[in-house]
Write a protein that binds this DNA or RNA. Sequence first.
DNA 1: CAATTACAGTAACAAAGGACACAAACTTAT
DNA 2: ATAAGTTTGTGTCCTTTGTTACTGTAATTG
Lengths: 210, 210
Amino acid sequence: MREELLSTFGTQFEQPLIDEIVAVGKLVEVPAGETIMDIGNYVRFMPLLLSGAIKVLREDDEGDELLLYYLEQGETCSVTMACCMGQTKSEIRAITETETKIVMVPVPKMEEWMAKYKGWRNYVFESYHNRLNELLNTVDSIAFKNLDQRLVAYLKKKAQVTNDDCIRNTHQEIAYDLHTSRVVISRLLKKLEKMKKLVLHRNHIQIVDL
Amino acid sequence: MREELLSTFGTQFEQPLIDEIVAVGKLVEVPAGETIMDIGNYVRFMPLLLSGAIKVLREDDEGDELLLYYLEQGETCSVTMACCMGQTKSEIRAITETETKIVMVPVPKMEEWMAKYKGWRNYVFESYHNRLNELLNTVDSIAFKNLDQRLVAYLKKKAQVTNDDCIRNTHQEIAYDLHTSRVVISRLLKKLEKMKKLVLHRNHIQIVDL
DNA sequence: CAATTACAGTAACAAAGGACACAAACTTAT
DNA sequence: ATAAGTTTGTGTCCTTTGTTACTGTAATTG
Protein backbone atom coordinates (compact mmCIF):
# COMPACT_ATOMS: atom_id res chain seq x y z
CA MET A 1 0.00 0.00 0.00
CA ARG A 2 2.84 2.39 0.79
CA GLU A 3 4.32 2.11 -2.69
CA GLU A 4 0.95 2.72 -4.33
CA LEU A 5 0.30 5.73 -2.14
CA LEU A 6 3.73 7.08 -2.93
CA SER A 7 3.35 6.69 -6.65
CA THR A 8 -0.05 8.40 -6.67
CA PHE A 9 0.35 11.00 -3.92
CA GLY A 10 4.10 11.10 -3.31
CA THR A 11 4.59 14.55 -4.76
CA GLN A 12 1.76 16.28 -2.91
CA PHE A 13 1.65 14.56 0.53
CA GLU A 14 4.30 14.96 3.22
CA GLN A 15 6.14 11.81 4.31
CA PRO A 16 4.58 11.76 7.81
CA LEU A 17 1.14 12.14 6.23
CA ILE A 18 1.78 9.12 4.04
CA ASP A 19 2.79 7.25 7.19
CA GLU A 20 -0.44 8.18 8.90
CA ILE A 21 -2.51 7.12 5.91
CA VAL A 22 -0.73 3.77 5.87
CA ALA A 23 -1.40 3.41 9.58
CA VAL A 24 -5.15 4.15 9.59
CA GLY A 25 -6.22 3.65 5.97
CA LYS A 26 -7.78 0.47 4.67
CA LEU A 27 -6.87 -0.64 1.17
CA VAL A 28 -9.76 -2.19 -0.74
CA GLU A 29 -9.96 -3.60 -4.25
CA VAL A 30 -13.35 -3.36 -5.87
CA PRO A 31 -14.42 -5.02 -9.13
CA ALA A 32 -16.20 -3.03 -11.83
CA GLY A 33 -19.89 -2.31 -11.43
CA GLU A 34 -20.08 -2.17 -7.62
CA THR A 35 -22.03 0.57 -5.88
CA ILE A 36 -19.62 1.90 -3.28
CA MET A 37 -21.77 4.77 -2.09
CA ASP A 38 -25.49 5.31 -2.40
CA ILE A 39 -27.97 8.12 -1.97
CA GLY A 40 -29.13 8.36 1.62
CA ASN A 41 -26.16 6.46 3.07
CA TYR A 42 -24.15 7.98 5.87
CA VAL A 43 -20.54 8.50 5.00
CA ARG A 44 -17.97 7.06 7.39
CA PHE A 45 -14.94 6.82 5.14
CA MET A 46 -13.36 9.05 2.63
CA PRO A 47 -12.11 7.26 -0.47
CA LEU A 48 -8.74 8.03 -2.06
CA LEU A 49 -8.61 6.53 -5.52
CA LEU A 50 -5.34 4.76 -6.28
CA SER A 51 -6.33 3.24 -9.61
CA GLY A 52 -9.37 2.63 -11.77
CA ALA A 53 -12.35 4.90 -12.31
CA ILE A 54 -15.59 5.62 -10.49
CA LYS A 55 -18.70 7.11 -11.98
CA VAL A 56 -20.72 9.50 -9.87
CA LEU A 57 -24.39 9.97 -10.58
CA ARG A 58 -27.46 11.74 -9.38
CA GLU A 59 -31.00 10.41 -9.13
CA ASP A 60 -34.31 12.22 -8.88
CA ASP A 61 -37.46 11.19 -6.99
CA GLU A 62 -38.74 9.11 -9.88
CA GLY A 63 -35.52 7.11 -10.01
CA ASP A 64 -34.24 8.82 -13.15
CA GLU A 65 -30.47 8.90 -13.26
CA LEU A 66 -27.87 11.26 -14.67
CA LEU A 67 -24.13 10.78 -14.86
CA LEU A 68 -22.34 13.70 -13.20
CA TYR A 69 -18.67 12.88 -13.75
CA TYR A 70 -15.95 10.30 -13.37
CA LEU A 71 -13.34 10.12 -10.64
CA GLU A 72 -9.90 8.97 -11.69
CA GLN A 73 -6.55 8.13 -10.17
CA GLY A 74 -5.50 10.44 -7.36
CA GLU A 75 -8.96 11.94 -6.99
CA THR A 76 -11.50 11.79 -4.23
CA CYS A 77 -15.19 12.46 -3.99
CA SER A 78 -15.72 15.99 -2.72
CA VAL A 79 -19.43 15.55 -2.50
CA THR A 80 -18.75 12.66 -0.15
CA MET A 81 -16.24 14.80 1.69
CA ALA A 82 -18.78 17.54 2.10
CA CYS A 83 -21.18 14.99 3.53
CA CYS A 84 -18.55 13.84 6.02
CA MET A 85 -18.04 17.33 7.33
CA GLY A 86 -21.71 18.16 7.50
CA GLN A 87 -22.67 14.75 8.91
CA THR A 88 -25.34 14.59 6.27
CA LYS A 89 -26.40 11.75 4.03
CA SER A 90 -24.87 11.20 0.63
CA GLU A 91 -26.51 13.12 -2.19
CA ILE A 92 -25.06 10.95 -4.90
CA ARG A 93 -24.41 7.38 -5.98
CA ALA A 94 -20.91 6.15 -6.85
CA ILE A 95 -20.33 3.05 -8.97
CA THR A 96 -16.98 1.59 -9.98
CA GLU A 97 -16.60 1.89 -13.72
CA THR A 98 -13.53 -0.35 -13.84
CA GLU A 99 -11.74 -2.44 -11.25
CA THR A 100 -10.43 0.01 -8.66
CA LYS A 101 -8.05 0.26 -5.74
CA ILE A 102 -9.19 2.60 -3.02
CA VAL A 103 -7.78 3.65 0.33
CA MET A 104 -10.54 4.28 2.83
CA VAL A 105 -9.70 6.90 5.42
CA PRO A 106 -11.87 7.37 8.53
CA VAL A 107 -13.63 10.71 8.53
CA PRO A 108 -12.26 12.14 11.82
CA LYS A 109 -8.71 11.95 10.44
CA MET A 110 -9.69 14.35 7.68
CA GLU A 111 -10.17 17.25 10.04
CA GLU A 112 -7.11 16.40 12.06
CA TRP A 113 -4.85 16.38 8.99
CA MET A 114 -6.41 19.57 7.76
CA ALA A 115 -4.83 21.50 10.60
CA LYS A 116 -1.62 19.47 10.53
CA TYR A 117 -0.56 19.06 6.89
CA LYS A 118 -0.39 21.72 4.24
CA GLY A 119 -0.21 19.03 1.57
CA TRP A 120 -3.49 17.58 2.75
CA ARG A 121 -5.18 20.96 2.88
CA ASN A 122 -4.08 21.71 -0.65
CA TYR A 123 -5.21 18.32 -1.82
CA VAL A 124 -8.64 18.70 -0.29
CA PHE A 125 -8.97 22.13 -1.83
CA GLU A 126 -7.85 21.05 -5.20
CA SER A 127 -10.36 18.22 -5.06
CA TYR A 128 -13.16 20.63 -4.32
CA HIS A 129 -11.97 22.86 -7.08
CA ASN A 130 -11.89 19.99 -9.56
CA ARG A 131 -15.29 18.73 -8.54
CA LEU A 132 -16.84 22.18 -8.84
CA ASN A 133 -15.37 22.53 -12.30
CA GLU A 134 -16.58 19.10 -13.33
CA LEU A 135 -20.05 20.00 -12.12
CA LEU A 136 -19.91 23.24 -14.07
CA ASN A 137 -19.01 21.25 -17.17
CA THR A 138 -21.93 18.95 -16.51
CA VAL A 139 -24.23 21.95 -16.22
CA ASP A 140 -22.82 23.38 -19.44
CA SER A 141 -23.35 20.19 -21.30
CA ILE A 142 -26.95 19.65 -20.26
CA ALA A 143 -27.87 23.33 -20.52
CA PHE A 144 -26.08 24.36 -23.68
CA LYS A 145 -25.55 21.26 -25.81
CA ASN A 146 -27.94 18.98 -27.59
CA LEU A 147 -28.04 15.25 -27.25
CA ASP A 148 -25.77 14.32 -30.17
CA GLN A 149 -22.98 16.47 -28.81
CA ARG A 150 -23.50 15.11 -25.32
CA LEU A 151 -23.44 11.55 -26.61
CA VAL A 152 -20.17 12.09 -28.48
CA ALA A 153 -18.60 13.69 -25.39
CA TYR A 154 -19.86 10.79 -23.29
CA LEU A 155 -18.36 8.16 -25.56
CA LYS A 156 -15.04 9.99 -25.71
CA LYS A 157 -14.85 10.37 -21.96
CA LYS A 158 -15.82 6.75 -21.41
CA ALA A 159 -13.15 5.55 -23.81
CA GLN A 160 -10.66 7.67 -21.91
CA VAL A 161 -11.44 6.51 -18.39
CA THR A 162 -11.65 2.84 -19.36
CA ASN A 163 -8.65 3.22 -21.63
CA ASP A 164 -10.49 1.27 -24.31
CA ASP A 165 -11.72 2.36 -27.75
CA CYS A 166 -14.49 -0.14 -27.45
CA ILE A 167 -17.49 0.92 -25.37
CA ARG A 168 -18.80 -2.24 -23.70
CA ASN A 169 -22.34 -1.14 -22.98
CA THR A 170 -25.84 -1.58 -24.24
CA HIS A 171 -27.77 1.36 -25.64
CA GLN A 172 -30.03 1.17 -22.62
CA GLU A 173 -27.13 1.68 -20.22
CA ILE A 174 -25.94 4.71 -22.14
CA ALA A 175 -29.48 6.06 -22.12
CA TYR A 176 -29.60 5.83 -18.31
CA ASP A 177 -26.33 7.76 -17.94
CA LEU A 178 -27.51 10.54 -20.23
CA HIS A 179 -31.04 10.49 -18.82
CA THR A 180 -32.88 9.76 -22.02
CA SER A 181 -34.51 6.74 -23.67
CA ARG A 182 -32.96 3.74 -25.38
CA VAL A 183 -34.67 4.49 -28.70
CA VAL A 184 -33.18 7.95 -28.83
CA ILE A 185 -29.67 6.64 -28.20
CA SER A 186 -30.06 3.91 -30.85
CA ARG A 187 -31.19 6.58 -33.30
CA LEU A 188 -28.23 8.87 -32.63
CA LEU A 189 -25.71 6.01 -32.60
CA LYS A 190 -27.00 4.87 -35.97
CA LYS A 191 -26.49 8.37 -37.28
CA LEU A 192 -22.91 8.38 -35.98
CA GLU A 193 -22.32 5.00 -37.59
CA LYS A 194 -23.54 6.33 -40.94
CA MET A 195 -21.06 9.18 -40.50
CA LYS A 196 -18.36 6.50 -40.10
CA LYS A 197 -17.47 7.74 -36.63
CA LEU A 198 -18.09 4.35 -35.05
CA VAL A 199 -19.19 0.78 -35.70
CA LEU A 200 -22.12 -0.74 -33.83
CA HIS A 201 -22.20 -4.29 -32.51
CA ARG A 202 -24.38 -6.09 -30.06
CA ASN A 203 -23.31 -5.12 -26.53
CA HIS A 204 -20.41 -2.97 -27.64
CA ILE A 205 -19.50 -0.02 -29.81
CA GLN A 206 -16.21 0.36 -31.64
CA ILE A 207 -15.09 3.96 -31.80
CA VAL A 208 -13.46 4.82 -35.12
CA ASP A 209 -13.01 8.56 -35.14
CA LEU A 210 -14.98 10.87 -32.87
CA MET B 1 -17.72 47.08 9.92
CA ARG B 2 -16.94 45.19 13.14
CA GLU B 3 -20.57 45.17 14.23
CA GLU B 4 -21.75 43.92 10.86
CA LEU B 5 -19.13 41.18 10.83
CA LEU B 6 -20.10 40.18 14.34
CA SER B 7 -23.80 39.99 13.58
CA THR B 8 -23.23 37.88 10.48
CA PHE B 9 -20.23 35.76 11.48
CA GLY B 10 -20.00 36.24 15.23
CA THR B 11 -21.03 32.71 16.09
CA GLN B 12 -18.68 30.93 13.71
CA PHE B 13 -15.52 33.08 13.66
CA GLU B 14 -13.07 33.42 16.56
CA GLN B 15 -12.61 36.90 18.01
CA PRO B 16 -8.99 37.23 16.77
CA LEU B 17 -10.13 36.19 13.30
CA ILE B 18 -12.75 38.92 13.32
CA ASP B 19 -10.01 41.35 14.33
CA GLU B 20 -7.86 40.26 11.40
CA ILE B 21 -10.72 40.61 8.97
CA VAL B 22 -11.41 44.11 10.25
CA ALA B 23 -7.72 44.92 9.84
CA VAL B 24 -7.22 43.72 6.27
CA GLY B 25 -10.73 43.55 4.80
CA LYS B 26 -12.27 46.28 2.74
CA LEU B 27 -15.95 46.99 3.16
CA VAL B 28 -17.72 47.88 -0.06
CA GLU B 29 -21.33 48.74 -0.77
CA VAL B 30 -22.53 47.84 -4.21
CA PRO B 31 -25.84 48.87 -5.78
CA ALA B 32 -28.07 46.31 -7.51
CA GLY B 33 -27.16 45.19 -11.00
CA GLU B 34 -23.37 45.57 -10.83
CA THR B 35 -21.09 42.88 -12.20
CA ILE B 36 -18.63 42.25 -9.40
CA MET B 37 -16.85 39.32 -11.01
CA ASP B 38 -16.68 38.29 -14.63
CA ILE B 39 -15.62 35.26 -16.65
CA GLY B 40 -11.94 35.38 -17.45
CA ASN B 41 -11.07 37.82 -14.66
CA TYR B 42 -8.33 36.99 -12.22
CA VAL B 43 -9.52 36.82 -8.66
CA ARG B 44 -7.64 38.88 -6.12
CA PHE B 45 -10.22 39.20 -3.40
CA MET B 46 -12.57 36.86 -1.74
CA PRO B 47 -16.00 38.34 -1.02
CA LEU B 48 -17.81 37.79 2.27
CA LEU B 49 -21.42 38.77 1.87
CA LEU B 50 -22.76 40.82 4.79
CA SER B 51 -26.13 41.73 3.32
CA GLY B 52 -27.99 41.64 0.03
CA ALA B 53 -27.91 38.95 -2.64
CA ILE B 54 -25.68 38.10 -5.57
CA LYS B 55 -26.62 36.02 -8.56
CA VAL B 56 -24.01 33.71 -10.00
CA LEU B 57 -24.26 32.69 -13.62
CA ARG B 58 -22.50 30.74 -16.31
CA GLU B 59 -22.05 31.65 -19.95
CA ASP B 60 -21.21 29.47 -22.94
CA ASP B 61 -19.11 30.36 -26.01
CA GLU B 62 -22.10 31.83 -27.84
CA GLY B 63 -22.85 34.16 -24.96
CA ASP B 64 -25.87 32.20 -23.75
CA GLU B 65 -26.38 32.59 -20.02
CA LEU B 66 -27.73 30.42 -17.25
CA LEU B 67 -28.39 31.31 -13.64
CA LEU B 68 -26.57 28.91 -11.32
CA TYR B 69 -27.63 30.10 -7.88
CA TYR B 70 -27.90 33.04 -5.51
CA LEU B 71 -25.51 33.93 -2.73
CA GLU B 72 -27.06 35.35 0.41
CA GLN B 73 -26.03 36.82 3.74
CA GLY B 74 -23.07 35.07 5.35
CA GLU B 75 -22.15 33.21 2.17
CA THR B 76 -19.17 33.44 -0.10
CA CYS B 77 -18.46 32.34 -3.63
CA SER B 78 -16.69 29.00 -3.55
CA VAL B 79 -16.12 29.00 -7.26
CA THR B 80 -14.27 32.24 -6.77
CA MET B 81 -12.45 30.73 -3.84
CA ALA B 82 -11.41 27.76 -5.92
CA CYS B 83 -10.07 30.16 -8.51
CA CYS B 84 -8.04 31.99 -5.87
CA MET B 85 -6.38 28.81 -4.75
CA GLY B 86 -5.69 27.53 -8.22
CA GLN B 87 -4.61 30.94 -9.55
CA THR B 88 -6.97 30.38 -12.43
CA LYS B 89 -9.42 32.73 -14.05
CA SER B 90 -13.00 32.99 -12.94
CA GLU B 91 -15.37 30.50 -14.53
CA ILE B 92 -18.48 32.44 -13.64
CA ARG B 93 -20.06 35.86 -13.59
CA ALA B 94 -21.45 37.40 -10.41
CA ILE B 95 -23.99 40.22 -10.45
CA THR B 96 -25.55 41.94 -7.46
CA GLU B 97 -29.24 41.17 -7.37
CA THR B 98 -29.98 43.74 -4.67
CA GLU B 99 -27.89 46.39 -2.97
CA THR B 100 -25.17 44.51 -1.10
CA LYS B 101 -22.51 44.98 1.54
CA ILE B 102 -19.40 42.93 0.97
CA VAL B 103 -16.12 42.55 2.81
CA MET B 104 -13.28 41.92 0.39
CA VAL B 105 -10.47 39.82 1.81
CA PRO B 106 -7.12 39.53 0.01
CA VAL B 107 -6.53 36.02 -1.25
CA PRO B 108 -3.23 35.26 0.59
CA LYS B 109 -5.00 35.70 3.93
CA MET B 110 -7.31 32.84 3.07
CA GLU B 111 -4.57 30.27 3.22
CA GLU B 112 -2.99 31.77 6.27
CA TRP B 113 -6.25 31.67 8.23
CA MET B 114 -6.90 28.16 7.04
CA ALA B 115 -4.02 26.86 9.13
CA LYS B 116 -4.68 29.26 11.98
CA TYR B 117 -8.42 29.28 12.66
CA LYS B 118 -10.70 26.31 12.97
CA GLY B 119 -13.70 28.59 12.56
CA TRP B 120 -12.37 29.75 9.21
CA ARG B 121 -11.65 26.23 8.02
CA ASN B 122 -15.13 25.15 8.91
CA TYR B 123 -16.62 28.17 7.23
CA VAL B 124 -14.69 27.55 4.02
CA PHE B 125 -15.73 23.93 4.05
CA GLU B 126 -19.32 24.67 4.73
CA SER B 127 -19.27 27.14 1.84
CA TYR B 128 -17.95 24.52 -0.52
CA HIS B 129 -20.50 22.10 0.76
CA ASN B 130 -23.32 24.57 0.21
CA ARG B 131 -22.12 25.51 -3.25
CA LEU B 132 -21.80 21.89 -4.31
CA ASN B 133 -25.32 21.25 -3.12
CA GLU B 134 -26.64 24.31 -4.90
CA LEU B 135 -24.97 23.17 -8.08
CA LEU B 136 -26.50 19.72 -7.65
CA ASN B 137 -29.89 21.37 -7.33
CA THR B 138 -29.23 23.35 -10.47
CA VAL B 139 -28.32 20.15 -12.29
CA ASP B 140 -31.46 18.47 -10.99
CA SER B 141 -33.63 21.28 -12.12
CA ILE B 142 -32.27 21.51 -15.66
CA ALA B 143 -31.97 17.74 -16.08
CA PHE B 144 -35.16 16.51 -14.48
CA LYS B 145 -37.70 19.34 -14.57
CA ASN B 146 -39.46 21.04 -17.41
CA LEU B 147 -39.61 24.74 -17.97
CA ASP B 148 -42.86 25.52 -16.16
CA GLN B 149 -41.53 23.94 -12.98
CA ARG B 150 -38.21 25.71 -13.36
CA LEU B 151 -39.96 29.02 -13.90
CA VAL B 152 -42.07 28.63 -10.78
CA ALA B 153 -39.00 27.70 -8.73
CA TYR B 154 -37.15 30.68 -10.19
CA LEU B 155 -39.90 33.12 -9.27
CA LYS B 156 -40.17 31.74 -5.76
CA LYS B 157 -36.44 31.92 -5.19
CA LYS B 158 -36.25 35.40 -6.60
CA ALA B 159 -39.07 36.58 -4.36
CA GLN B 160 -37.20 35.08 -1.43
CA VAL B 161 -33.80 36.65 -2.05
CA THR B 162 -35.20 40.07 -2.87
CA ASN B 163 -37.71 39.76 -0.04
CA ASP B 164 -40.42 41.05 -2.36
CA ASP B 165 -43.52 39.33 -3.75
CA CYS B 166 -43.24 41.49 -6.78
CA ILE B 167 -40.73 40.38 -9.41
CA ARG B 168 -39.35 43.54 -10.99
CA ASN B 169 -38.12 42.13 -14.28
CA THR B 170 -39.08 41.95 -17.91
CA HIS B 171 -39.85 38.60 -19.51
CA GLN B 172 -36.65 38.95 -21.50
CA GLU B 173 -34.54 39.15 -18.36
CA ILE B 174 -36.16 36.06 -16.91
CA ALA B 175 -35.57 34.28 -20.21
CA TYR B 176 -31.84 35.02 -20.02
CA ASP B 177 -31.57 33.60 -16.51
CA LEU B 178 -33.35 30.40 -17.48
CA HIS B 179 -31.58 30.20 -20.82
CA THR B 180 -34.64 30.23 -23.02
CA SER B 181 -36.49 32.74 -25.19
CA ARG B 182 -38.71 35.63 -24.25
CA VAL B 183 -41.67 34.22 -26.15
CA VAL B 184 -41.55 30.99 -24.19
CA ILE B 185 -41.48 32.83 -20.87
CA SER B 186 -44.40 35.07 -21.88
CA ARG B 187 -46.35 31.97 -22.84
CA LEU B 188 -45.71 30.19 -19.54
CA LEU B 189 -46.33 33.31 -17.45
CA LYS B 190 -49.67 33.79 -19.19
CA LYS B 191 -50.54 30.22 -18.32
CA LEU B 192 -49.65 30.84 -14.67
CA GLU B 193 -51.75 34.01 -14.69
CA LYS B 194 -54.75 32.07 -16.02
CA MET B 195 -54.21 29.63 -13.15
CA LYS B 196 -54.44 32.67 -10.82
CA LYS B 197 -50.95 32.08 -9.45
CA LEU B 198 -49.77 35.55 -10.38
CA VAL B 199 -50.77 38.81 -12.02
CA LEU B 200 -48.81 40.21 -14.95
CA HIS B 201 -47.95 43.86 -15.39
CA ARG B 202 -45.55 45.72 -17.57
CA ASN B 203 -42.04 45.40 -16.07
CA HIS B 204 -43.18 43.51 -13.02
CA ILE B 205 -45.03 40.42 -11.91
CA GLN B 206 -47.14 40.18 -8.79
CA ILE B 207 -46.96 36.77 -7.18
CA VAL B 208 -50.29 35.66 -5.76
CA ASP B 209 -49.88 32.04 -4.78
CA LEU B 210 -47.11 29.85 -6.21
C1' DC C 1 -32.83 -27.86 -29.95
C1' DA C 2 -36.88 -25.18 -28.63
C1' DA C 3 -38.31 -21.51 -25.84
C1' DT C 4 -37.43 -17.41 -23.71
C1' DT C 5 -35.21 -13.26 -22.99
C1' DA C 6 -32.22 -9.33 -24.12
C1' DC C 7 -30.79 -6.18 -27.50
C1' DA C 8 -31.12 -3.30 -31.51
C1' DG C 9 -33.51 -1.09 -35.69
C1' DT C 10 -37.23 1.55 -37.34
C1' DA C 11 -41.63 3.78 -38.20
C1' DA C 12 -45.26 6.67 -36.61
C1' DC C 13 -46.79 9.82 -33.62
C1' DA C 14 -46.79 13.23 -29.55
C1' DA C 15 -45.03 16.89 -26.75
C1' DA C 16 -41.93 20.52 -25.38
C1' DG C 17 -39.70 24.14 -26.60
C1' DG C 18 -37.61 27.39 -29.98
C1' DA C 19 -37.99 30.72 -34.18
C1' DC C 20 -40.31 34.09 -36.68
C1' DA C 21 -43.70 37.40 -37.58
C1' DC C 22 -46.67 40.81 -36.34
C1' DA C 23 -49.83 43.58 -33.49
C1' DA C 24 -51.07 46.07 -29.50
C1' DA C 25 -50.04 48.63 -25.42
C1' DC C 26 -47.27 51.34 -22.88
C1' DT C 27 -43.08 54.64 -22.03
C1' DT C 28 -39.89 58.11 -23.17
C1' DA C 29 -37.86 61.74 -25.70
C1' DT C 30 -38.38 65.49 -28.63
C1' DA D 1 -48.76 65.42 -28.99
C1' DT D 2 -46.06 62.79 -32.04
C1' DA D 3 -42.56 59.64 -32.99
C1' DA D 4 -39.61 56.15 -31.59
C1' DG D 5 -38.49 52.54 -28.70
C1' DT D 6 -39.73 48.89 -25.32
C1' DT D 7 -42.53 45.34 -23.61
C1' DT D 8 -45.97 41.92 -24.00
C1' DG D 9 -49.48 38.80 -26.37
C1' DT D 10 -50.39 35.51 -29.81
C1' DG D 11 -50.49 32.62 -33.99
C1' DT D 12 -47.96 29.47 -36.96
C1' DC D 13 -44.46 26.50 -38.06
C1' DC D 14 -40.12 23.81 -37.14
C1' DT D 15 -36.77 21.00 -34.55
C1' DT D 16 -35.52 18.14 -30.98
C1' DT D 17 -36.57 14.79 -28.04
C1' DG D 18 -39.67 11.37 -26.00
C1' DT D 19 -43.16 7.45 -26.55
C1' DT D 20 -45.23 3.41 -28.31
C1' DA D 21 -45.31 -0.37 -30.99
C1' DC D 22 -43.58 -3.85 -33.64
C1' DT D 23 -39.74 -6.48 -35.93
C1' DG D 24 -35.59 -9.33 -36.32
C1' DT D 25 -31.83 -11.40 -34.39
C1' DA D 26 -28.45 -12.80 -31.02
C1' DA D 27 -27.79 -14.98 -26.60
C1' DT D 28 -29.16 -17.83 -22.91
C1' DT D 29 -31.62 -21.40 -20.60
C1' DG D 30 -34.09 -25.56 -19.83
